[in-house]
Structures are given as C-alpha cells and as structure tokens.
C-alpha cells in the first residue's frame, strides 16, 4: 500500500472515531447531565454547578409522594415479574413441549401485545374493565403490565427451552422420575438463567413504563415515571435530577446484575 493511501485510510479512520465519540456524547450527555446536576448545590435544576451536595437526595427521602410512588412502582414491578415469570414459563413449556390444536394461534396471541402500540393497549384494557364493571384498582395496573411484559418472558424462556434437549427429560423419566420430578430436577434448573433474565426484564419493563401506566393507574396513585412527569409540570426541581439518577441506577444496574447472574448460572449448568 502506498504512503498516500495509508494516510487517506488514516484520515478516514480518524473520521470514524470522531463520529463515534460524537454519537456516544449525543446518547449519553443527557444522562450524564442528570447525574452530575443531581449533586449540584444550586436551587435551580440547571447549570452552572455551584457546589457538590447530597441535599437533593435527602430532600427526596423527605418527599412523601415520591416515596409512595417509589413503593408503588417497586411493588407493581415485583408482583408483575413474579406472575409474568410463572405464566411465561408455563406458556413456553406448553408451546415448546406439547402439541395441541390451535398452538400457532396461542403463540401469536401471547406475542401480540409486544407489537400493538401501548396507547391502544392502554385504552383497550380500560374499556374492557369498564365493560366488566371492574373498579380501577392497582390490580388493573398489574394486569396491564403483565400483558405488556409477558411476550418477552415467553420469547426468552421459549428460546432457552428449545436449547434444552428433550433427551434430558426423557432420561430422567426413564430413570423413574415422574413429570413433576423431572420438571423440578431437570427442566427448572436448566431454565434458571432464562427465568432470572426474564424476572429482571419484566421488572425493568414494568418499573419504567409510563404511557400505558397513565391510562391504568387508579386516580390519585402515581408510579415513579408518572410522579416525575407530574413534578416536571410544576418546575424543573433539582430533586428530579436526583430521582432520575436513582431510576438510572435501578433500571441499568438490575439488568447488569441479572445478566451476570444468568451467565454465572448458565456456566454452572453447562
């Protein structure tokens, strides 16, 4: 290769690097700004920095409505992820391990909510509840979140289940284990990585859902995202930055921990 061409290539490479860095800045700057400003001592939720302080975090801890919203979100997310994982595992088992009429349809219907716009789902579930004369309790919100997250659980568990060879189950049964024992001793442990992954995935989906939650939450009840939204309507308080930082920690940290845990489980399982 001639010197000029090498230089050209060097230039092109430089350009790619610059663009990459710019894209990363574009993606992560807002997040960084929120995190940095959450430690700003200033009364206003913007630059310039006037000093380092945890005061907005302390203030959050004293904010009753924020704490209540946080509790609500955590509760909804936990209940949703547990129910979703149980249903998702059962559904995936049925879809992968058993033959029954209308299997294709059931599969499509289980996955469909992931494809329908959330606004439509939001309105739809509300109309259904009105038609059934059901009050708008927190359980409607949970039900809605289950509907939103279930497709992902089914997909994740299904993928793993296809990878678990049926001969393991057949071997267990030939050795004297009935269906239940086989599930408990063989299928479930081998599915664990997928179950951990889906618990966390559902938790995250539920924890930061806002669009559908706006439709489904009972009046007077706020989830974390709707709480932030309503706080923003009043002013950009520095508290919101602290809250945002906490949200980032929960929604990024959990999947990371979960991913690591799943990989660890998968290794011991292989």
């Amino acid at each position: 290769m001639s010197g000029a061409a090498a230089e050209n290539r060097g230039l092109g490479w430089r350009a790619v690097q610059v663009v990459t860095v710019l894209v990363y800045i574009f993606m992560f700057a807002p997040i960084m700004v929120v995190v940095v400003l959450s430690f700003n001592d200033s009364q206003f939720g913007g630059f310039p920095m006037t000093g380092f302080s945890f005061r907005w975090y302390y203030k959050l801890l004293e904010n009753e409505s924020v704490l209540r919203a946080f509790q609500t979100s955590i509760w909804v997310a936990i209940v949703t992820s547990v129910i979703c994982s149980v249903l998702g595992v059962l559904g995936a088992l049925a879809l992968v391990r058993y033959e029954f009429p209308g299997k294709e349809w059931v599969n499509t219907i289980l996955i469909a909510p992931a494809l329908v716009p959330e606004t439509v789902l939001g309105v739809g579930l509300l109309l259904l509840m009105r038609w059934a004369h059901q009050p708008r309790t927190l359980w409607v919100l949970v039900l809605g979140h289950i509907m939103l997250a279930l497709p992902y659980v089914v997909l994740v568990v299904q993928a793993r289940l296809i990878g678990i060879k049926r001969v393991y189950e057949e071997a267990a049964m030939s050795l004297g284990a009935n269906r239940f024992h086989t599930f408990r001793e063989i299928t479930l442990p081998l599915l664990m990585p997928a179950i951990v992954a889906s618990l966390l995935l559902v938790f995250t989906i539920s924890f930061d859902n806002i669009t559908a939650s706006m439709f489904w939450r009972p009046s007077g009840v706020e989830t974390m995202p709707t709480q932030i939204l309503s706080m923003l309507k009043v002013s950009i308080s520095p508290e919101i930055n602290a809250l945002g930082t906490l949200m980032i920690i929960v929604t990024v940290g959990l999947p990371l921990i979960g991913g690591g845990l799943a990989r660890y489980l998968a290794r011991s399982v292989r």
């Binding site: 060879k165 001969v167 393991y168 057949e170 071997a171 267990a172 001793e185 063989i186 442990p189 081998l190 011991s268 399982v269 292989r270």
Partner: peptide
C-alpha cells in the same frame, strides 16, 4: 447416543 447426562 449423546449420553444425555444431566449437565447441571
């Protein structure tokens, strides 16, 4: 054929 030993 492929033994089917329980991997875990």
């Amino acid at each position: 054929q492929n033994y089917a030993l329980f991997p875990h």
